[in-house]
Nucleic acid binder design. Structure first.
Length: 198
DNA sequence: CCCTGATTCGC
DNA sequence: GCGAATCAGG
């Protein structure tokens, strides 16, 4: 896959929306998140803050030449917010290397980790989902309670009062307690709400 | 362990 | 220019 115009545009768009590199990579397909990140950097939009300001602060790396160098005049160390009772004036700490009044670094308002999908509202499980569950249940790892981790599906199967009880244990969806199949039955996409009229 | 982005460097 | 490998956090 190559970086066609469209792909680059989608990349820009998604990156601008605050999507993670892996998500973008997934969406684009044919590329890894590394590729996405690499492209992002090459495009020069690695930082989602100032459009043109170069404030690439070299992290700390085993510098091969520790001798000389480091003539950094220290741009803006750390104007720590003083615990003053100053009621007004948040004191904007801008490097002010270049006048840039037009782009005040807009923040995304949606960096929520996992945008929660529509919550369940109906109790109807699609036959598809059920079939899927039955299917994967056969592949379940049948974990015991102690074997569950953050990344394992915690869908219970069987009767807790019997020996025949276990948890699915398949890889859970990121940020969710269940594997894909079980998420499918646990979180219904608000299907047709059956208005029971009487 | 899972995930993030950042950087390096051979291709 | 590209992206895998690696680094550095969370």
């Amino acid at each position: 896959m190559s970086w066609t115009d469209e792909r680059v545009e989608l990349l820009k768009k998604m990156w601008g929306e605050g999507q993670s590199a892996s998500q973008i990579a997934k969406e684009l397909g044919g590329v890894t998140r590394n590729a996405v990140i690499g492209k992002v950097h090459r495009l020069g939009l690695s930082n989602r803050n100032s459009g043109g300001a170069k404030a690439a602060e070299p992290k700390e790396k085993p510098a091969a030449a520790p001798a000389a160098a480091a003539p950094k005049p220290a741009a803006a160390p750390k104007p720590k917010p003083q615990p003053k009772t100053e009621p007004a004036r948040p004191a904007a700490a801008q490097p002010a290397s270049d006048a840039k009044p037009a782009t005040p670094a807009r923040r995304q308002i949606i960096p929520a980790g996992q945008p929660l999908p529509p919550q369940p509202s109906a109790n109807e499980i699609s036959p598809e989902a059920l079939a899927k569950v039955n299917e994967i249940e056969k592949k379940a790892k049948k974990l015991g309670l102690m074997e569950l981790t953050e990344r394992t599906c915690k869908w219970p199967v069987g009767d807790p009062a019997t020996e025949d009880f276990w948890f699915c244990g398949l890889p859970a969806q990121q940020g969710k307690p269940y594997c894909e199949a079980h998420v499918g039955v646990a979180f219904q996409p608000m299907s047709s709400r059956r208005d029971r009229r009487r």
